[in-house]
């Protein structure tokens, strides 16, 4: 089997499709691309593919990663062109690399893509609804706090999450056109993480960040492991 890693986007056109739907869309794209894809065994064969950290509904991304396998080795440009041509609006292929499996004597195989993820960088854009100075102050106050709790309510359970343990860097604030731009560098661990939308909600509700929450747009710009972009880990 020949394994490849692709870095893909999730554009504005499809920001509201789920992670599962995104996987289905990619499966059909690979089929349209007529790549010699490898399938799972069993009654209901599926393409052998795996994804990195799932994205929340409504978030776009320049950093979606997918590992997939082919039964024949094709050269990188051929795969790149064929797959690019078969993608639907809203998904672009940014990079593609073969995954070099370590030789058996070198020890362990590559970790699963999902397990490699340690860090995500997100940008939040939202219209300013008040004073710029107040906005800067709100972010400073949040950054200065030692402990911040987020009350997460899901249909299944409700719990409090300590947020600061996941903040790898202070939240940065700037302006982009007439939108406030927040940059968040968040740690993603096997046991949990915090979502950028949740940080934004805290900033707005608890720290008085004057932005229009309902019009905020979030984009994931990077996903990293061991301090490197996931595409460079292969």
């Amino acid at each position: 089997m020949y394994k490849y890693r692709a870095q893909l986007t999730k554009g504005d056109e499809i920001r509201y499709i789920s992670h599962l739907d995104y996987a289905g869309v990619m499966e059909r794209a690979i089929r349209r691309a007529k790549l010699p894809a490898a399938y799972t065994e069993g009654f209901n064969p599926h393409l052998k593919m795996s994804f990195a950290s799932p994205l929340s509904l409504g978030v776009t991304s320049d950093a979606e990663y997918m590992d997939f396998e082919l039964t024949k080795p094709l050269c990188q440009p051929e795969i790149f062109d064929k797959l690019s041509a078969a993608l639907p609006p809203g998904i672009r292929l940014i990079k593609l690399k073969p995954v070099k499996e370590p030789k058996p004597c070198e020890g362990k195989k590559h970790k699963a893509l999902m397990a490699e993820v340690e860090q995500g960088i997100y940008e939040v854009m939202a219209p300013l609804t008040g004073d710029w100075d107040a906005a800067v102050k709100a972010v400073e106050k949040y950054n200065g706090a030692t402990e911040v709790n987020y009350h997460r309510v899901t249909p299944k359970k409700t719990r409090d999450i300590e947020v600061k343990q996941y903040m790898l860097e202070p939240v940065k604030i700037g302006m982009s056109g007439d939108l406030v731009k927040l940059t968040m560098n968040i740690s993603i661990t096997q046991t949990g993480s915090i979502k950028p939308a949740e940080i934004l909600e805290l900033l707005h509700n608890e720290y008085g960040l004057p932005v229009a929450l309902g019009r905020a747009l979030i984009n994931r710009s990077k996903l990293m492991g061991q301090g490197k972009d996931l595409i460079d880990l292969v």
Partner: peptide, 21 residues
């Protein structure tokens, strides 16, 4: 449609088009 609308409804992709073909 504003994000807050699409975030509030069930299956927002029903309303966002841009499908292949």
């Amino acid at each position: 449609l504003e994000p807050e609308i699409l975030q509030a409804v069930e299956k927002p992709a029903r309303y966002t088009g841009h499908e292949l073909n």
